[in-house]
Design a binder for these strands. Structure first.
Length: 287
DNA sequence: TTAAATGTTTAAAT
DNA sequence: CATTTAAACATTTA
């Protein structure tokens, strides 16, 4: 699912809740969700959680035995924290964020001290949890392949990374080895916002195009983050109704609806292997 | 029944 | 070599 804003929402939320907690035990009923050896699983017991961070779309949980849990939510992962006093869930928006847990999508259960529990739910089972020595994190397969983080990258760096690339700009935005964190929804939103055709080769874009694209991407991230990600706490509003999920989207999943700028109808095409929404009038292809 | 889904990886085709 | 496309992972929903 989850892209950078949703992952960041998980991280900010969990940091307030789980740091200081000790792990009692970890269980799992779908082996591929928890990619640890039995020895590694045992090593977690009694360990204290020292910090929660994000790198690209990966969630990093630092533990007192100098190991770090690395979690990837992929398309449908979510993390939910429950204790007597608190409840917090974020990631892919589904009813599991508020229903009784564990449920049928629960893959891993981390029992913490003081009666608290952390659930890793993942309907499609693509997500994973790994463990890595903290000092070797940079060499871990997934982390090692990540480019600069998309949140807070400077315009200059952003432009430098892309301007010489031959491939289509959308493929560039989705390439985690170039820029880490952007996913399908935010790529479409930023491209629409900057009036750039997703299939334009990056090298055809002007400095002004990159500046605009960068601006739009940071802006959509910010909006989504303020709303708690396109999921999470605002999935359910104060009245207990389904709320802000994708409310910020201006093109994504709006096929057949009028473009909010020019009223021509939003089209859906396939680009960079993904469903892609755009306004063919506003987002002109360059020669 | 078919198509697609907020991601990544790998193999095969250009 | 650089890019693109398709398939795979597994399940649900339209």
């Amino acid at each position: 699912m989850p892209e950078l804003p949703e992952v960041e929402t998980v991280v900010l939320g969990l940091r307030q809740l789980i740091v200081g907690h000790k792990i009692r035990d970890v269980s799992c009923d779908w082996a591929r969700s928890l990619r640890l050896t039995q020895a590694q699983i045992s090593s977690l017991k009694g360990t204290q959680i020292q910090g929660v961070a994000r790198r690209g779309k990966a969630i990093l949980i630092d533990l007192s035995h100098r190991q770090t849990l690395v979690i990837h939510l992929k398309l449908t992962g979510q993390l939910v924290y429950q204790s007597r006093q608190q409840f917090f869930g974020a990631g892919h928006p589904t009813d599991s964020l508020l229903g009784h847990l564990p449920d049928s999508s629960t893959r891993v259960i981390v029992r913490l001290d003081k009666g608290a529990v952390l659930y890793f739910n993942d309907v499609r089972k693509f997500g994973w949890i790994k463990l890595c020595p903290s000092h070797k994190l940079a060499q871990m397969d997934y982390i090692q392949g990540l480019g600069e983080d998309a949140l807070g990258v400077s315009v200059e760096r952003f432009t430098d990374i892309f301007e010489t690339r031959q491939k289509m700009i959308k493929a560039c935005l989705l390439d985690q080895s170039l820029l880490a964190g952007c996913g399908n929804i935010y790529a479409d939103e930023a491209l629409w916002g900057s009036k750039i055709h997703p299939q334009n080769s990056a090298k055809l874009l002007l400095k002004a195009d990159f500046r605009c694209l960068w601006q739009e991407l940071q802006q959509v991230f910010k909006l989504s983050l303020e709303a708690g990600g396109s999921s999470s706490k605002n999935y359910i509003n104060a009245k207990g109704e389904k709320g802000a999920y994708l409310d910020f989207a201006r093109v994504y999943q709006r096929e057949g609806l009028p473009c909010l700028r020019c009223t021509s109808l939003i089209r859906r095409i396939k680009a960079a292997g993904r469903g892609t929404y755009l306004c063919v009038v506003c987002q002109k292809k360059k020669l």
